[in-house]
Simulated scan of single mutants.
Amino acid sequence: MKQNWSQETYIKAYKFAAQAHQGQKMPGSEIPYIMHLSFVSMEVIAALNVEAKSDGDLALQCSLLHDTIEDTDITFEQVKTKFGESVANGVLALTKDESLAKHLQMADSLRRIKEQPQEIWMVKLADRITNLQAPPYYWTQEKIIRYREEGIQIYKALQDASPFLAARLASKIEDYKTFV
């Protein structure tokens, strides 16, 4: 089967993301944040192996860069200059609008993601799959319930992008009940 993404493109985005997130840790741990991005891109690679119709380079670059605008000093323009407009638009769609009230952010994010190619939808599915691990010790029960409900919201909105990732997310949502 022909691979629909390039290792060089992946490495370029991975290095950029590693530099941008340098010193950041995964919430509630001492694990470098780049691990989260590796896990998200691994989910996307697994989906691309099964669903080869997607633009793998777009999906993988966005999976590695999806938190750069939201969580670092990197700007939309910097992503656009280095990776092109499609990647920058995808990363921007995956970035929460912090000017909105917290309870409005997910609906807004999903609306913006749905305006993008389905590869961007895949990144959001993979991101939530990756995040539906044991919650950080400091989360309240209410936060855990709300996070699982957001997972269901993401699943319902974006499941058509990737049957493979949708099935993985549905399984993770079911498994997450153990924390509720």
Rank of each mutant, 00 (worst) to 15 (best):
L100P: 10
Y137K: 14
S99W: 01
L65M: 03
S63D: 08
S171Y: 14
D67H: 13
G151A: 05
I113V: 15
G90I: 10
E85F: 06
T81Y: 05
Q78N: 09
R112P: 00
A107G: 13
R168C: 11
N131F: 10
I31S: 00
A107V: 11
L125E: 00
W139Q: 10
K124F: 09
E150Q: 13
K15M: 12
S162V: 06
T75A: 04
M35D: 10
M106D: 14
L125P: 07
E30W: 03
N49F: 11
S29H: 06
T140L: 01
E98K: 15
Y10T: 08
L64K: 01
I120K: 02
H21A: 05
Q116H: 08
I129N: 07
E77C: 06
K177M: 11
G84F: 02
P136R: 11
F39I: 13
D175P: 01
K53E: 12
L64V: 04
D55V: 02
W121Q: 13
F83R: 03
E142T: 10
L169K: 01
F164L: 03
A88C: 07
E51S: 02
I74A: 05
S86I: 03
I145S: 06
R148A: 02
I31F: 07
E70I: 07
P163H: 08
I74M: 11
E30K: 13
D73F: 05
Q116W: 04
V123W: 06
Y138A: 10
Q159F: 06
D55G: 02
E98C: 07
S41Q: 08
